[in-house]
Design a protein around this nucleic acid. Structure first.
Length: 420
RNA sequence: CGGGGCGUGGUGUAACGGCUAACAUGCUUGUUUUGGGAACAAGUGACUCCGGGUUCGAAUCCCGGCGCCCCGACCA
């Protein structure tokens, strides 16, 4: 992509109404735009990151027999009344509205009800189970206080998968598998070493659930971490659960963190109230045993910024970066421009995702913008580098800068970059 | 929802109740520059959040809204 055609521009100054690092950097670098408190639009660069994260999650979900679908954002009041969660005292973040022709509907804050209800059309027999439908969906929650940029909004994108199992044993096997997969996901998006599998309250569903908590001062949760087993306990249940499974109390260290994912054992909470049953091999009806598994996609993006950014700007891990390479041409001569254009074409041919800063601005501005935007590799083409028939390659995360022959880039750019 | 702070060109700020609302940045044009946010010059751009009130006179004071941020409460 040509940066000269990108409609977003970077800003030098932070918007005065944003204090949180993630919103400050993401707005200044042109990834997101704030519409109102807790509501953000994703701009071209930001959407690319969102799609990267979604694809990582999607791959993992599909690999465990997840079936992607998409439920509606608008919700029928009836099904929520049956489960007992239409009441504002039960779910206090409802956005509700009236139909012009009469009748009420809501904007989905979560999707257990509609999916359970929908699956009644497809689950009949034990032969139909287990099933793992999932979606990426915008959730709406009327939070009394939106905060921390995109970490806690009123409208946000979430991946939610629901497991439909024959019984608790079958559910537990999947639940454990999913907790492992979640760890892989957070590893892949670059938060592995900061993210802890955390025992937490199960809310109204069960005694315990598991959260994935990423340690960052921008978070709003408090967890007690055991470095030995890389697990944690949420403060909300520290009284009930004096220690994590393998460790002693004195090993626990208090940390501030943000919940980037959670997995719940729903039991038969929804299949009972919404009457979702299957016939077992003896022809007797049984309640379907359910679980839910969520990851806040936008929140994950914000958390990556919070955890990995430095004083110059964002630092994207390769896996979620909007582009792998930020190609920068320095100099006005035709020779330099043509060489840079050739490299750009070459990288595109090699299917390397590259943002080409072909703008007619000074080097300093390009470098500052590049640091702010945070693309993993910066490749500079200039008179200097051409004199050596080379390009300068800089790794955003480490600052490591070295020259590499243009010829090598033309053969296999990825190999050259991977060598860093 | 309780407490605190704040609303001024696109962005960030300034302005005692008193001149044509200032400065920086951005953007446009020109000249010179060209490896870490260049220099000069000329331009562009604001019903000072909205509605009332006080006053000869309001960005400024008062009342009422609305919006944004922060702390707390809340967070299936």
């Amino acid at each position: 992509m040509l940066q000269s055609l990108l409609f977003t521009k970077t800003r030098k100054e932070a918007p005065k109404d944003e204090v949180s690092k993630n919103a400050d950097l993401l707005i200044r670098a042109g990834f997101i735009h704030k519409e109102m408190a807790g509501v953000y639009s994703f701009l071209p660069l930001g959407l690319r990151v969102i799609e990267k994260i979604k694809n990582i999650v999607r791959e993992e979900m599909n690999a465990t027999y997840g079936q992607e679908m998409q439920l509606t954002a608008l919700q029928d009041k009836d099904v929520w009344e049956k489960s007992g969660r239409w009441n504002d005292e039960v779910i206090d973040v409802w956005f509700k509205t009236d139909l012009k022709a009469g009748g009420e509907l809501g904007l989905a804050p979560t999707h257990e009800e509609p999916l359970t209800s929908l699956m009644k059309n497809f689950i009949r027999s034990y032969r139909d189970l287990p099933l793992y439908p999932y979606q990426f969906q915008t959730k709406f929650r009327n939070e009394t206080r939106a905060k921390s940029g995109i970490l806690r909004g009123r409208e946000f994108l979430m991946k939610d998968l629901y497991s439909f199992s024959k019984d608790e044993n079958e559910h537990t096997v999947f639940y454990d598998k999913m907790s492992k997969i979640y760890r892989d996901i957070f590893e892949k998006v670059g938060l592995g070493e900061h993210t802890y599998f955390t025992l937490a309250s199960g809310g109204s569903f069960s005694k315990f659930s598991h959260e994935f908590q990423t340690v960052t001062s921008a978070g709003e949760d408090t967890i007690f971490v055991c470095e030995k087993c890389k697990m944690a306990v949420n403060k909300e249940i520290i009284e009930d659960q004096k220690m994590c499974p393998q460790c002693k109390n004195e090993d626990l260290v208090e940390k501030t963190s943000i919940e980037v994912g959670n997995i719940f054992n729903l039991g038969t909470r929804f299949s009972d109230t919404l009457n979702l049953t299957y016939l077992d091999d003896k022809g007797k009806p049984q309640a379907v045993f359910m679980g839910s598994y969520g990851i806040g996609i936008g929140r994950l993006m914000g958390t990556i910024v919070e955890v990995l950014a430095d004083e110059k700007g964002i630092v994207w891990p390769k896996s979620v970066a909007p582009f792998l390479v930020h190609l920068i041409v320095v100099g006005e001569s035709d020779e330099v421009k043509n060489s840079a254009q050739k490299i750009y074409d070459e990288l595109n041919t090699q299917k390397v995702e590259v943002l080409f800063d072909d703008r007619d601005v000074r080097a300093g501005e390009k470098f500052a913008d590049s640091d702010l935007i945070g693309i993993p590799y910066r490749i500079v083409i200039s008179e200097k580098t051409l004199a050596e028939k080379s390009a300068e390659i800089k790794v955003r995360a480490t600052g490591n800068t070295e020259m590499r022959p243009l010829a090598d880039l033309k053969v296999d750019a990825i190999a050259v970059l991977d060598a860093f």
